[in-house]
Design a protein around this nucleic acid. Structure first.
Length: 798
RNA sequence: GAGCCCGUGGUCUAGCGGUUAUGACGUCUCCCUUACACGGAGAAGGUCCCCAGUUCGAAUCUGGGCGGGCUCACCA
């Protein structure tokens, strides 16, 4: 062993060792029960962020533990790189606009960009010590994924779950595509509440609105049926200002008398309520906004203007005409697209949907069949299911994604589906289809829309399992575990559940573990706030083991505030483990086999045995943080601070060869066990130590495929209790010396222990075998016992 | 507005009916003892958010506040 451990070079050495020797390769025919993990495919964005390092470390600890326990671990790796996120990344980094380019040119650029950045991106995952089988690799835009995704779509068509319909849909004018409910989020935006003059029955009717630019799309006016101010107007007409057309005044309970003037205009579509009224009362459709967020022809002179410009101008015009009675500045929550923060519009268009609103009850049952860690995360899922209001809109008017395998008849618009055996296909290239329409027509137009990225990533259990031979796929699917962070329960977990249920009628996994978030002074990290920590920099400074040590200090579901000092604690642990192993190595020179016969040695083996048991119980409940705490206590306190100090003199100057051999036996057992116990948390340092100290003796190619340690000794309460007393005596001696400001080497005349007799054993008898080590460790001349009827007490005389 | 989570020494955290309330970081004192000064020994530091209840007994259970966070919803 060298003087110091150099994490930076050592970690790279072992990464290469693992890769070269295929340590984490999945062999479907290997022994051991299969434990399969539905690894989250990160969205390719150039660099891993600290939240990734955090959650992927946590799941990796589970994977490594299961491997030690003898499971045949299936732990694939994929990248999610189709759809809008990639388009936005390419548009940003290459300074282009997909919509203004030749479609194929843009797609090629996306593919090229991915090819450039993907290897570096994936390398970040290797670097933190993810024990994935990187040979089992998929990209959600690769050919196999395209095939699986298109097959899935056709399967849903066959099951009458996928349908195409012209309907009002959530729409992002910035991205110029329809989006789904889950892609929306709230944002506080400033706005103005404008009281505008309509005319009805020759009188002024004041209506408050935040969206005056929608006036031209106004189709009705609503007030509450019980609202006495407006009761007499129901069934009458009102005239829209500036545009001068008439609309009906109608009663509906959704109108809130408390809000504004209690009377509201319904435009197609200002918001979701407008849409509901449109459906309920069969109102006409008037579209005021185009798909790229501009005013349509019906807006008259505002036609072609952006909606926000039109709003400003129309307010001015109303003001000039004396039709604006009041204006208040407000901030209100607006629905925006989570990818670009643009306010969402509701626009009528023809889209593909997956029908699932009828399955809400079933969805709740499916969620209940899954074991959640922590359990309370299930309520996020339930909450989402209960709030679902739209079927899943899966078509996107974008470019870089998986194409719908569909063409449409130019005469009757009937969809013609691709032959499932010929997938994947691109209807734009594989054209025309080799079929006739049922109406006899032979002319078609290809579908240009692409599938929502979640429509593919919701199939990850399949994307991963189909990397295996067909005969082996059933071994890994349904999967044992879905690990992920809590922010995408409503996206990824929910969608995967739905797809697996719809396609195969089963839950995709047995259990789910949900990671928390990394925060900075309690706040979410974000580039705009400038409080981002880059894992690459942390690794460069402290090594991946230290980072992992930090990440494993919080349990599943808990957020963790980032403090660099906590990573430093990990770094210190690595050093401590190195030094303890170094001590063991120095004192195990020449040792081959032996038995622990001394009391102190038996005691530490008992502690070890109990620690292993405790760690195992915690691990099996997915509570690695607890397991870590138990290991920490054993390693740092029991083993380093107490045990090693107790055996030093016996090790250096044995009176009898067996004195030393007994300690060596225990030391050797502890060393081997410690390396394996810590291997899931700090895989690099443990591998380094295993390779240099134990590999030759034990023969495993890596500590990570060695078996979980077992200490084969029977429970011995006497040793445990007497050992505790030995530690108390040691502590009393140390305390006395500290208080006297003396070195720990300072001699002690006498230690007197007042030990009450126990019903079951006589402590002063049981402690006898420890006395030699105790005297040596405390430099005490004598240790004597006096029976006491009172409390246990230890007196130290210098 | 709804659901969920959280509130423990200066900071982070364990404990979840009976503990001298755990540990880490920080602070202070001492110790260079041949694994480790990136160490060791010791000390100081706490109305366990507040109020009420259940109980012989509550940091721990129940109810009600207050404060923070997340998710969903509302969005004229």
């Amino acid at each position: 062993m060298t003087e110091k451990y150099d994490a930076k070079t050592a970690e790279l050495t072992w990464l290469k060792h693992w890769e070269d020797n295929k340590i984490f390769s999945f062999n479907p025919n290997a022994k051991g029960k299969v434990y399969s993990i539905d690894t989250p495919p990160p969205t390719v964005s150039g660099k891993m962020h600290i939240g990734h390092a955090f959650s992927y470390t946590q799941q990796d600890i589970i994977a490594r533990y299961k491997r030690l326990k003898g499971f045949n671990v299936f732990y694939p790796f994929g990248t999610d790189d189709n759809g809008l996120p990639t388009e936005r990344l390419v548009e940003k980094t290459k300074n282009v606009k997909g919509a203004r380019m030749e479609r194929q040119e843009f797609i090629t650029l996306c593919e090229q960009t991915l090819k450039e950045i993907r290897p570096g991106f994936v390398n970040d995952w290797k670097r933190i010590g993810s024990s994935c089988d990187f040979q089992l690799f998929y990209s959600t835009i690769d050919k196999n994924c395209q095939k699986i995704s298109q097959e899935g779509f056709l399967d849903l068509v066959k099951k009458e779950r996928a349908y195409r319909k012209e309907a009002p849909s959530l729409w992002c004018p910035q991205c110029a595509t329809a989006i789904s409910q889950v892609e929306c989020k709230d944002a506080e935006k400033p706005s103005s509440f404008n009281e505008i003059v309509f005319m009805a029955e020759g009188k002024e009717l004041i209506i408050a609105t935040t969206r005056p630019e929608m006036l031209s799309a106004c189709v009705a006016i609503f007030a509450h049926p019980e609202d006495n101010r407006y009761k007499k107007l129901f069934g009458k007409k009102a005239t829209v200002p500036l545009y001068d057309f008439e609309i009906p005044i109608m009663p509906d309970t959704k109108a809130n008398p408390e809000k504004g003037t209690g009377i509201v205009m319904c435009c197609t579509f200002g918001d979701q309520t407008d849409m509901e009224w449109y459906r309920q009362y069969n109102l006409p459709l008037k579209e005021a906004i185009t798909r790229d967020g501009k005013m349509t022809a019906i807006a008259g002179k505002y036609s072609g203007m952006r909606t926000d410009d039109a709003r400003k101008q129309i307010i001015q015009e109303l003001k000039d005409a004396g039709l604006l009675r009041a204006q208040t500045q407000i901030t209100h929550a607006v629905n925006v697209h989570e990818r670009c923060n643009t306010p969402i519009e509701i626009i009528q268009s023809k889209q593909w949907f997956i029908k699932y609103l009828d399955l809400k009850e079933d969805m709740l049952k499916w969620g209940a069949e899954l074991t959640w860690h922590p359990a309370f995360m299930k309520s996020r899922y339930d909450n989402w299911v209960k709030g679902l209001q739209w079927d899943w809109l899966i078509s996107r008017q974008r470019f870089f994604g998986i194409p719908f395998p569909v063409w449409y008849c130019t005469k009757c618009d009937t969809p013609i589906f691709a032959d499932p055996k010929k997938l994947p296909i691109d209807p734009l290239k594989d054209f025309p289809p080799a079929k006739k329409c049922s109406c006899g027509n032979t002319e078609f137009i290809p579908e240009k829309d692409v599938l929502d990225t979640w429509a593919t990533s919701s199939l990850t259990p399949k994307l991963a399992s189909t990397l295996l031979d067909k005969k082996d796929q059933h071994k890994v699917y349904p999967m044992s575990l879905r690990p992920q962070a809590h922010d995408i329960i409503t996206f990824w977990l929910f969608n995967t559940m739905v797809r697996s249920r719809l396609h195969d009628g089963i839950n995709p996994w047995k259990e789910a573990v949900i990671s928390g978030f990394v925060t900075m002074q309690g706040e979410k990290m974000s580039k705009s706030k400038g409080n981002v920590i880059e894992p690459q920099e942390v690794i460069a400074k402290y090594g991946a083991d230290a980072l992992r040590y930090w990440a494993s200090s919080s349990k599943f579901g808990d957020d963790l505030d980032y403090h660099e000092k906590d990573v430093r604690t990990g770094d210190k642990f690595v050093t401590k483990l190195w030094n303890a192993a170094n001590f063991a190595n120095l004192n195990l020179q020449g040792y081959t086999t032996g038995t622990a016969t001394h009391a102190t040695d038996k005691w530490i083996l008992h502690k070890l045995r109990n620690t292993i048991q405790a760690a195992e119980e915690s691990f099996d409940a997915y509570d690695y943080a607890h397991a870590k705490a138990a290991l920490e206590k054993f390693f740092w306190q029991d083993f380093c601070d107490n045990y090693l100090e107790l055996i030093k003199v016996r090790m250096y100057e044995p009176k009898d060869p067996q004195d030393k051999q007994s300690a060596q036996a225990a030391l050797s057992t502890c060393l081997s066990a410690l390396l394996r116990l810590w291997a899931p948390f700090t895989p690099f340092i443990t591998e380094e130590l295993y390779q240099t100290l134990l590999k030759e003796k034990e023969g495993y190619a890596s500590v990570h495929i060695a078996p979980w340690p077992v200490v084969k000794i029977k429970e011995d309460k006497k040793i445990e209790v007497a050992g505790e007393l030995a530690v108390e005596i040691l502590a009393a001696a140390r305390k006395k010396k500290s208080e006297a400001k003396l070195s720990m080497k300072a001699p002690i005349k006498k230690i007197t222990v007042f030990a009450p007799k126990n019903d079951h054993w006589n402590l002063s008898q049981e402690i006898q075998p420890f006395l030699a080590d105790l005297k040596a460790a405390t430099s005490a001349e004598t240790i004597q016992f006096e029976d006491a009827t009172a409390e246990k007490r230890i007196e130290v005389e210098m």
